[in-house]
Write a protein that binds this DNA or RNA. Structure first.
Lengths: 181, 181
DNA sequence: ACTGTTACTGAACACGGTATTCGGTAACAA
DNA sequence: TTGTTACCGAATACCGTGTTCAGTAACAGT
């Protein structure tokens, strides 16, 4: 990839995440991103079709990292052994913490929906096994939706209360959501 | 109130809810509402400051009805006796069912946030007693947020799966959310 | 029926944000 | 060195929002 392209793409991403730290997604204009990244208007639109497209790309980058299966290569924590749902949740929380500062800007406001849709697509895989093992009169689809919502909302709550550790958050979540393993 | 005002206000509301049956809130333009209600642009803006304001007013009307305490006056169902949290939930579900057809248009999309904020304000009162009786390591605020999210998402799910009765939905909710009474 | 008030009308307008176009410049890779 | 590719930025079309204003129609009270 062309050095210039990389540079520009990086500039856009970091301008974007910078803005997200102080402003919610929906209030950020393309012009602000352009100014902060110090690039031409045309350049922005040659990299991303729309602002939503940029958010999608950013989400993609975050999730590619967060949900990567290279659990052993991680240094901040060690999950080289058992990979049950609980462990995977904790693993995800550890990763998300790294992005927490600007995640709140995405989650609060309308942009949250776009991000969340993305998020949920990943969470479906995570929670489907748990749903199977829970026997309730409610339809599987309801339970799954319920778990995903619980987790999403936990993240959202965490972004507003960042003083808690991933382990604490994980416990909060597990004790208030019916996941039997 | 002036007869003309009432007529206009009604025309706006019914045009709005009509549109909500086929389109999500964020995609509906003021012009569409104006055309469907067959009123002048100025008239719309003399009734409501913005589109969001209209949604707020509609939400207000819905909730005034749904959360009214005149439980005994209702004819579709009878809750003249015990008013525990479970009963109140069922009561609310019965009322919401009447608005289900256009509620989905509000809930899906960005407008959901605005409506939900409103909704949550009412739900806080509903769930606070339950939170108190639940002993968990998680902070009260987390639990409360969790319950409200569960309920909101249940409504959302219901709007996508309208074949279920209020009683069934109530059961689904109660069995998957930790409400000890 | 008259009169003052209030509500509705609709075209025109200012504004802000989005996304595109285009001619020109600078950086790259071979 | 040369052809390609990326970047620049001003100008522009577009769309939706919300306001203005002069004129018309409906209302309520006497």
């Amino acid at each position: 990839m062309d050095r210039r392209q990389k540079k520009t793409r990086n500039a856009i991403f970091s301008a974007f995440t910078d803005l997200l730290r102080t402003e919610s997604y929906s209030k950020i204009t393309v012009q602000q991103i352009i100014d902060k990244a110090d690039i031409g208007r045309t350049t922005f639109y040659s990299h991303f079709e729309t602002k939503d497209d940029l958010l999608k790309s950013l989400s993609q980058e975050i999730f590619d990292h967060v949900f990567s299966d290279d659990l052993d290569k991680e240094k901040t924590h060690d999950f080289s052994q058992n990979h049950g749902t609980g462990d995977r949740i904790l693993h995800i929380l550890y990763h998300l913490q790294e992005h927490m500062d600007y995640l709140s800007g995405i989650l609060s406001g309308d942009g949250g929906e776009l991000f969340m849709d993305f998020f949920k697509a990943y969470l479906v895989d995570l929670f489907t096994p748990s749903v199977r093992s829970v026997t309730r009169s409610a339809p599987e689809d309801y339970i799954l939706n319920h778990m995903i919502c619980d987790f999403s909302e936990t993240i959202r709550w965490w972004s507003r209360n960042p003083q808690y550790s991933p382990d604490e958050i994980c416990n909060f979540f597990l004790e208030s959501t019916p996941i039997s393993e």
